[in-house]
């Protein structure tokens, strides 16, 4: 009789090695452990619960199929996050882009409005509850176009370099830089505007 494994007490490395050998229970433990983070990443990119659930499920299915390819060159969570990010990027490309977004991109490339705006500094002394700050950031992210949101997420939250972002988004490094600049400026403006709303 096979000994019962204590999956919750195993670390990720042990779990994925077991999963690589076909142990589905080990894989299920990995899913349970990291499902919220993977879902959160999908949601941050797609801004839609249904899409985020579908894509995070798809990411787990793909991970199971590709387990043997994973050699432990990064943490399991990092590897999984890359899979879900790529799926989200594919889905975003397939989805119909609104004309206003492409015009926005063209405007941004030619030196859009935000480039001419005065510098707005988020108030560093303002003491915000962390949850309130996170809510504001989330609200502001939701108001960016998918390209600007994506580049911000990949750079600020996933800490990817410009070159890596360019590869994933299939664009030039120059485009990454322009989009990131625009996204940061827009975030600062939005965060400042929320503060003004609250003070009224």
């Amino acid at each position: 009789m096979a000994s019962k494994k204590d999956y919750p007490s195993m670390d990720d490395v042990g779990l994925f090695k077991a999963a690589q050998r076909g142990d589905m229970q080990a894989f299920e433990e990995l899913v349970a452990r990291h499902r919220d983070k993977i879902y959160a990443r999908a949601f941050s990119m797609m801004r839609n619960e249904e899409d985020a659930i579908d894509l995070s499920q798809e990411a787990w299915v793909k991970a199971w199929q590709r387990l043997k390819q994973f050699q432990g060159e990064s943490s399991f969570l990092t590897w999984m996050t890359r899979i879900v990010i790529n799926l989200c990027l594919d889905q975003l490309r397939k989805q119909k882009r609104q004309r206003s977004e492409s015009i926005e991109e063209m405007e941004e490339e030619s030196g859009g409005v935000e480039r001419q705006m005065p510098v707005v500094t988020p108030n560093p002394t303002e003491k915000l509850e962390r949850t309130e700050l996170r809510a504001r950031i989330d609200r502001a992210l939701g108001q960016l176009s998918y390209e600007h949101r994506t580049v911000l997420i990949l750079h600020e939250f996933e800490e990817l370099e410009y070159k890596e972002i360019a590869k994933r988004m299939q664009c030039s490094i120059g485009t990454v830089m322009s989009r990131l600049f625009y996204a940061r400026r827009k975030m600062a403006v939005l965060m400042a505007s929320y503060r003004k709303e609250e003070l009224r």
Partner: peptide, 10 residues
């Protein structure tokens, strides 16, 4: 932005 992403539960 760093470290201030909203926590989301599936």
């Amino acid at each position: 932005l760093k470290g201030n992403e909203v926590d989301r539960r599936l």
